[in-house]
Design a binder for these strands. Structure first.
Lengths: 235, 235
DNA sequence: TTATCTATTATGTGCATACATAATATAAAA
DNA sequence: TTTTATATTATGTATGCACATAATAGATAA
């Protein structure tokens, strides 16, 4: 955590306060001194204390109210930040060579649930593709993706997904989008097992993701990871 | 996102800049104007611009370097914040009644890998417990937990885990701890299937978690969720 | 040419000050 | 007593200013 020495006052104050909170000098839900008092104690400007306290409040370990004062969060909620890297980086991070293969591509009318995800009408068709992602030429993840042609019509004319996978192409084309992700466990079906060269019934880690931008739905996909895959983070 | 109208200048500036970034006014990796220029443009102090830019940098959509200037992050890394709620809240959030049952409890010498997680010596023993968590009296998750007796010796004398589950007791006793979590998919074994009243071979969602505080290791656990469980978040 | 020094530049930070704002406590009026 | 106005308080924010610091570009010396 505090591996990088910060000689800056507001960082130092923040870490000092963090320690005091974590050592239970102030108990859960308890009021801590006011900014003015802390400024006096630390011998710095109130601005500096304010900055430190706001940062801790952003982290969720303090709760602040005007006039009410600042108190230690009564129920410390653990928040894990997990970055969702693109597959190429995920594979290269473990020192393997990344490659991918487009095994299916079509324009078709998606199922009801997919239509709902992309907010498209009943008759409308969409772009569909299946991709197998490899680490050192061994299947690593299998991707089923639908792309909304109303939002990203250019994809229909995009012929070359050899260098850039569809995901990477989309990130370049629609860089800042919001999305919803969910993680679950999934028994490998005949199709997913075949794509990942594993057994039917294997426990696959499934990432479900739908992204949109300015209210326009862009893409929805299912990403099946091989057995043994772990998504890790710190809290 | 910007649902709550903020009349504050630095919030307004931040959201304005966010829109300009998301509308690709500045492309991926491109340099944006300096603080001084933006301050001139927005008619505010540099401090205000600085605050807005720092916030966007914290979010990961800007990259700042002294002298180098501020640029749009070349590879927008999607960061999902996922809060790890305690099981009681998770169950009650879906409108079900929460209950739990301690099915095993002992002081024993853990396996090599657990000893490694808790950083305890070869001969040392630790506290072990298995808990089944129910939603409306149906098994929801199965927990296997080891607790380091060197760090939390009080747990040995704690007899009553009826009201508070071990996890809840630990949160109360050691409120601010760091930890590592990993998610994966796991085929139900005889034991886990039995505990969750499901079939052997079912695809379970597994959460692996180890927590520590000030370098002292507290607990490590495996939490197996029933089939169909989804962990969701937005990015 | 290469290495070394030296501006220059944009961000990082701290501070004093001033005022805004939400929430509470107190006093005054009904 | 209840309601309403008013003061008080702690945090929220904006600003001008000064200086620190990292990284670069340019100038100078080897």
């Amino acid at each position: 955590m505090s591996s990088q020495l910060q000689s800056n006052s507001h960082h130092k104050v923040r870490e000092s306060l963090r320690e005091r909170i974590e050592s239970s000098e102030w108990k859960l839900g308890e009021l801590i001194p006011t900014e003015v008092d802390l400024a006096k104690e630390y011998g710095c400007a109130r601005t500096t204390i304010n900055r430190a306290l706001q940062a801790l409040a952003d982290e969720g370990i303090l709760i602040r109210k005007r006039k009410g004062g600042t108190r230690v969060c009564p129920i410390p909620i653990r928040q894990a930040k997990l970055s969702i890297p693109i597959l190429r980086e995920q594979v290269e991070a473990i020192g393997s060579e990344y490659s991918h293969q487009l095994v299916g591509r079509k324009i078709a009318a998606p199922s009801q649930s997919i239509r709902q995800n992309l907010k498209i009408d009943d008759g409308d068709s969409a772009f569909y593709a299946e991709t197998i992602h490899f680490a050192d030429h061994r299947p690593f993840a299998y991707e089923e993706r639908w792309v909304n042609l109303k939002t990203v019509p250019e994809i229909e004319n995009e012929t070359d997904f050899d260098l850039l996978s569809i995901n990477e192409w989309l990130i370049k084309t629609v860089p800042f989008s919001s999305g919803e992700v969910s993680f679950s466990a999934h028994k490998a079906t005949e199709r997913t097992a075949k794509a990942l060269q594993t057994d039917i019934g294997a426990a696959l880690f499934l990432v479900d993701r739908t992204t949109w931008m300015n209210g326009k739905f862009i893409t929805t996909m299912k990403l099946y990871y091989r057995e043994g895959y772990r998504l890790s983070t710190t809290i």
